[in-house]
Amino acid sequence: MSEYQLEVEGVCKRFGGVVANDRITLSVPQGRIIGLIGPNGSGKTTLFNSIVGYHPIDKGSIRFEGREISDMRVPEIARLGVLRTFQQTRIYGKMTCVQNMQISMPHTNEGLRTMFSKYPPEVVDKAESLLEFLGLYAKRHLMAGDLSFGQQKLLEFAMALMNEPRLLLLDEPTAGINPTLINGLIERLKRSNADLGITLFVIEHNIRAIMNLAEHIYCLAHGQLLTSGPPDQIQNDQQVIDAYLGAK
């Protein structure tokens, strides 16, 4: 097994004439928190979509724990333990929070028989304790669609944790969240990494949040990998500043 959990090598993806990802190579080591930044339209979400199999890639290879996943389908990749959250939060709106959590149990090794089974009480316990972890316990019997945007975002994160992923791709976890809550959320992200051993790969526009969270940051611009390095180095990198502020 390779020392990196996720290895992206020379990935290209174009939509018509737009080159969204151009020969991107990066790697995410097991058990760490890695950031991905870049101006709007720089190809961050496209890269996430490529990793989780949402669309086929044109060139390159994506390996998870040494296994090629670029030709697998979305649910198969998810069952390997690579999970993503969405920029536009996605939850099951017409189901209660607890139901949202129950159905997010891992689906690996699920046979025809388990399809029809009931959930054991431990599942509800686990769902409730995770909802409590994110401060949603009191609202657990409400329809998820009736929650505020920020709460839905927290719920989506809770659902991801319920799935016990090995690698979690978070697409702008703090966007749209009340600023006073962001610190709490960052704290919980760190705790899920430290306590549950989940590798985090995070797209984030909130520079302060990502500097505080990630140990290593990749920066994309115009579909290409611009640079990478530890947060303090990235923060002062002239190329990164130029990319964001549009110098030259």
Binding site: A78, P106, E110, M159
Partner: peptide, 8 residues
């Protein structure tokens, strides 16, 4: 979302 969560 269901697919992304690994549901069959």
């Amino acid at each position: 979302k269901a697919e992304a969560m690994g549901i069959h």
